[in-house]
Write a protein that binds this DNA or RNA. Structure first.
Length: 552
RNA sequence: GGCCCCGUGGUCAAGCGGUUAAGACAUCGCCCUUUCACGGCGGAGACAUGGGUUCGAUUCCCGUCGGGGUCACCA
């Protein structure tokens, strides 16, 4: 009885690994092309940190004419969640980040290196596990979970490192015959990797992001095949990223400490190791402390949150890109109209420490992103959002021609309006431009400096009767408000007003405010000239009448 | 606790032995011939700490403190 017999006893039907090596050949890509992936497990909603990783991965793959693929890591059936896979696929789609290869729905996939769902690759993992066993680099372990618990408790009590290593690796010492015997007796077992490492030796690793990191070698005989026949993360990672010909493993930095193990696995399997880029997590301030954005506590941890809020997907991506490479910000200022894909992203310039998530900054980017859109784009995106989340807004946007006029206010010029940060802001932003909303919502008119009824009524009446002409250009329109102010005994110029304190009760600005409040019931609005043009004479008159009525 | 990583204004961060220590968001003030959102100008605001090394340390080394990660038949 030798290792080969043992391997055959355990995996009688596994193929020779040569079969897979040939089936998944080296990729024929240009020099420097990066093959990388997003490899989430379908255990819940997609986390913003996951999207961040995916963005970084996709960006470097695109930059180098490489490949970005999506692999689903569903080797833990217990934690799997319903619709997990489709949730991942759709989230990527929502952000216009569909992979080049891999899962494209919950069951379909594209690409020649599949299956891209780990639960479908059981045979492959077993073939490689068998290969290791044949070489004496892996072995069956018969320890029960209870025994493992016991071992761990002993180790802890003795203040020793926990784990399956050295003298604690009980089954490692079994002879091949003993192992075969136990298997034939029907004892249950898992497969462990026989680590050649020594804890007192150091290995050097150069991470693409973290730089040089030294670790003790791995000496743990970790489990590679679980009792359900599926691999653990570590083993699946080695087999898959080798077979899928991944060149860069871009993943969350919680994996950094597993690098010694992974490198060892690649080496013992005879694989060329990929480069590793460990990304720092996105953090959240929690009572002065920092912690990872939590799925349970923080709504903004879920990518679906951004969709619900209507934060433009481009804003989210630009924000993430900004965290990834802070030079993005300067680039963006210098190139306000370029596509973010043109930015020269550098993996090795990513921050080594985790950034605190800054919603305020994200929203600021949202404002800028939306301000650069045409009225048509704003209309389309707002409508898309409304169709999913706000039927009232959908109703308001029915009249597209009118909506375009509303969205066109102060848009398209050199200093475009910047007051919508997210699609959920739209309704509140344009409500007063719609008569039904205006009349049903207006409770009061917040007049400011000029607040006495007589003056207000007089201003409103005079304006309509004497000063408002639909076709006035902006300068004439404003000159007339000045004239009106003067006629009422107010200052026609603010400067004049300020230069002569006490001489006037109010100035043009105050008169404008009366008009604005009567017209919109708000003190703050975009340019009133444009608003009046969109509203039209009839509406303006009606609203002024209503305002006058309201005075009584 | 062991191992590993990190520590520049409130936040994201440039910087890599000699700098008036950039920039962005936030904040404050002024200006932009009417408000607001912009935009412009300006203000306030930082090298965690103690030792070294050096002519000179934010920058290099060590300690301390602080933060984070990891030690599963989870990924």
């Amino acid at each position: 009885m030798d290792y080969k017999d043992l391997a055959n006893l355990i995996f009688p039907n596994a193929k020779d690994i040569k079969y897979y090596e040939e089936k998944y050949p080296e990729r024929n890509l240009p020099e420097g092309a990066i093959v990388t992936r997003f490899a989430p497990s379908p255990t819940g909603f997609v986390h913003i940190g996951g999207l961040y990783q995916a963005l970084v991965a996709k960006t470097v793959a695109e930059k180098t004419d490489g490949v970005f693929f999506l692999r689903v890591e569903d080797t833990d059936q217990k934690r799997e969640v319903e619709n997990g896979v489709i949730g991942i696929v759709n989230s990527l789609k929502d952000f216009d980040m569909a992979p080049d290869e891999g899962m494209i729905t919950d069951t379909e996939e594209i690409g020649n290196y599949g299956p891209y769902k780990q639960s479908l690759r059981k045979d492959i993992y077993q073939a490689y596990a068998k290969y290791l066993i044949e070489q004496g680099k892996a072995y069956p372990c018969f320890c029960t979970p209870e025994e493992d618990e016991e071992r761990k408790a002993k180790q802890e009590a003795a203040k020793l490192r926990t784990g399956y290593y050295g003298v604690w690796a009980k089954c490692r010492k079994l002879t091949v015959e003993e192992m075969a015997e136990k298997i034939k007796n029907g004892e249950s077992y898992i497969i462990r990797f026989k680590s050649p490492g020594r804890e007192d030796r150091k290995i050097k690793h150069k991470d693409v992001i973290k730089g040089n990191v030294d670790f003790p070698e791995n000496d743990q005989d970790i489990i590679i095949i679980k009792s359900d026949g599926l691999p653990t993360y570590h083993f699946a990672h080695a087999v898959d990223d080798h077979l899928m010909r991944t060149t860069y493993v871009i993943r969350s930095d919680e994996w950094l400490s597993s690098v010694p193990l992974h490198l060892q696995l690649f080496h013992e399997l005879g694989f060329k190791a990929p480069k590793y880029a460990h990304i720092s997590p996105i953090m959240k301030n929690d009572n002065g402390g920092k912690r990872k954005l939590s799925k349970r506590k923080d709504p903004e941890a879920a990518v679906s949150y951004y969709k619900e809020q209507g934060i433009p997907t481009d804003a989210v991506k630009e924000y993430l890109l900004n965290i990834a490479n802070s030079t993005f910000e300067n680039w963006r200022r210098a190139n306000p109209d370029k596509k973010m894909e043109e930015f020269d992203f550098q993996l090795n310039k990513m921050s080594v420490s985790g950034a605190l998530f800054d919603m305020i900054k994200l929203l600021d980017i949202g404002k800028t992103v939306i301000s650069k859109m045409t009225a048509e784009e704003v209309y389309e995106k707002a409508l898309d959002w409304a169709n999913e989340f706000d039927s009232e807004l959908v109703e308001m946007l029915k009249n597209k021609e009118y909506a375009l006029k509303v969205f066109g206010i102060e848009r398209g010029n050199k200093k475009p309006r910047k007051d919508i940060a997210k699609w959920s802001d739209v309704k509140e932003n344009i409500e007063y431009m719609y008569d039904d909303k205006f009349y049903s919502k207006t409770q009061e008119y917040p007049y400011q400096v000029i607040s006495d009824k007589e003056s207000i009524e007089k201003i409103l009446k005079l304006y309509i009767e004497k000063y408002y002409y639909v076709n006035d250009d902006k300068q004439t329109w404003f000159d007339k408000i000045k004239e009106l102010s003067v006629e009422m005994g107010y200052a026609g110029e603010v400067k004049e007003f300020k230069a002569n304190p006490g001489k006037y009760k109010a100035h043009v600005g105050d008169v404008s405010t009366v008009l604005r409040v009567a017209l919109t019931s708000r003190t703050n609005t975009p340019d009133m000239y444009e608003i009046m043009k969109v509203l039209g004479k009839e509406t303006i008159e009606k609203r002024f009448e209503k305002a006058i009525e309201n005075l009584k």
